[in-house]
Design a protein around this nucleic acid. Structure first.
Length: 460
RNA sequence: GUGGUUGUAGCUCAGUUGGUUAGAGCGUCGGUUUGUGGUACCGAAAGUCGUGGGUUCGAGCCCCAUCUUCCACCCCA
């Protein structure tokens, strides 16, 4: 064979079984989104670069796929710019569009652009692929799907409460038990940074703190010190490292750390509200856990921060995340619109369900009955029956090629086997004469000759 | 973006310090079996050893580049 074609790294082809399983997940998620009152929207797969660039931090900019301009884009570059070879200067001149990096920023753009047509609070969901120029690893791809639900135009903490319920509802519907919804609050992180005198180093501080369960207390302290946080400040963090117990007792410890910080106390107040509400409403299968070290998406989250981790024992990064962003639309010129949202990582949820064998057998459902083809007259008669069965909603098909020998028969039976088709119908010369059908059960091997009505009822 | 790792038949993988014609299992195809599949037995086809350079009398094996896989960073769903 000649050189085989290939696809770019970090992308995948999906066979029909995988498509069925993926669609089982997205349909389950969409169904819950609808039940919770969200409306679908879709946005283009690529945006103007200035919509995306600079919204995800320096690291994010690096991971955005940029689209080369059409036409003679190099001719428009001045000799000076060309000679200079400065990416930051040249890139915007040869690339004015970029692939969607997530669903949140395009959504913010959508809200601002269509603000006069939207009823606030606006609840939307969106299930579309996003692209990142990342280096692939397990559960990390360069093209993957996000399933987002967001609300804009309400500051109510009941939204956060509902999103936690929504997470719980989806994972319950997927029969995925033992999922942990971690929650934190940007205001608490700000408060802690304030207390230790590192307000200006909030990001460095939280990035280091985020690594606590991965690299341990000592390394975290080292990293903070290296980032310029004072030893005195780090000492004040000591109670934080020993934080344990349930939601309530952790909150009490945090209160003592944050007693001098107004914003920190505000964060605690918010967390307490959410926790109390969830305790009253109860979750079905997921667990809610306060995790002060959780610090994701700080480039725009301002209040609650969510992250969902797979059940214990499954080696997978987060399978969902989200949070409150008080001023996301501000970057597009629409001030004081608060938003909060969550995201499900389809590709990772897939890997988790696969690892735990949680896909129901029903996702594989395909053709129920295959008619063996014995020749023109028989095939014609078979197609009549096939049409009738199809009109009754029974997945049926006729093998397209005729039997010319016993080998062909074997081939057709094998075909049914390979495709896991549970029934085969034989309409040969005898059946044609008697106007009956030989129905064979491919699992048990049993066979019976019956009329059309019986055939329908047996296959229903 | 940094460091490492992987690639041999359709699939999963062997292949010794560089040495004749690169192997196995599964699958595929044919036969035992011309209206009955799954099991069994017999047989066959199938590989530019990821790709491109280089070293060597000789390269699947060594060197360089590149693509790909997986992993750890960074970051993230």
């Amino acid at each position: 064979m000649a050189q085989k074609p290939s696809i770019p790294k970090g992308t995948r082809d999906f066979n029909s079984e995988t498509v069925a399983k993926r669609s089982y997940i997205t349909e389950t998620i969409k169904q819950q989104f609808k039940v919770y009152g969200f409306q679908p929207i879709e946005t283009p797969s690529f945006e103007n670069s200035d919509t995306l660039i600079g919204k995800y931090g320096e690291e994010g900019d690096r991971l955005i796929f940029k689209i080369l301009n059409s036409g003679e884009y190099l001719k428009k570059i001045s000799d000076a710019d060309y000679q200079e070879r400065l990416e930051s200067k040249l890139t915007p001149k040869i690339s004015e569009k970029a692939l969607r990096y997530d669903l949140t920023v395009p959504f913010a753009r959508y809200v601002v652009q269509h603000q006069n047509e939207i009823e606030f609070p606006f609840k939307r969901y969106q299930v579309q692929p996003v692209w990142r120029a990342d280096r692939p690893q397990k559960g990390r791809f360069r093209e993957f799907y996000q399933c987002d639900a967001d609300v804009v135009g309400s500051r109510s903490l009941f939204q956060e409460v509902e999103f936690i319920q929504l997470y719980d509802a989806v994972f319950t519907a997927l029969n995925l038990k033992g999922v942990t919804i971690k929650i934190n609050n940007r205001k608490i992180l700000s408060g802690i940074a304030e207390v230790i005198g590192a307000q200006d180093k909030l990001i460095d501080f939280t990035v280091a703190l985020d690594k606590l369960d991965k690299i341990g207390e000592e390394k975290v302290k080292e990293e903070m010190l290296a980032k310029g946080i004072s030893q005195a400040g780090i000492d004040k963090l000591q109670p934080l490292f020993g934080l344990s117990g349930n939601f309530g007792s952790q909150i009490e410890s945090l209160k003592s750390i944050l007693e001098s910080s107004e914003i920190g106390l505000k964060g605690i107040e918010e967390l307490e509200f959410i926790n109390t509400a969830i305790a009253t409403l109860q979750l079905k299968t997921a667990g809610l856990q306060l995790d002060v070290t959780l610090a994701r998406g700080l480039n725009y989250y301002t209040g609650a921060i969510f992250e969902v981790s797979a059940p214990e024992g499954v080696n997978m990064g987060s399978i969902g995340g989200g949070g409150r962003y008080d001023d996301l639309t501000g970057i597009f010129g629409l001030k004081d619109i608060s938003g909060v949202g969550i995201s499900f990582g389809l590709d990772r949820i897939y890997l988790v369900l696969e690892e735990l064998s949680l896909f129901p057998d029903s996702v594989k459902e395909n053709t129920k009955v295959l008619f063996i083809n014995f020749g023109e007259a028989e095939a014609m008669e078979s197609l009549k029956a096939v049409s009738t069965l199809r009109s009754k909603g029974i997945n049926a098909e006729l093998y397209p090629d005729w039997v010319t020998s016993g080998k062909q028969m074997k081939k057709q039976m094998n075909y049914a086997n390979k495709r896991d088709i549970p029934f085969v119908v034989l309409v040969g010369e005898e059946e044609l004469k008697s106007n009956r059908f030989a129905l064979k059960n491919m699992t048990s091997g049993e066979q019976e000759t019956i009329n059309l009505d019986d055939l329908i009822s047996k296959l229903k």
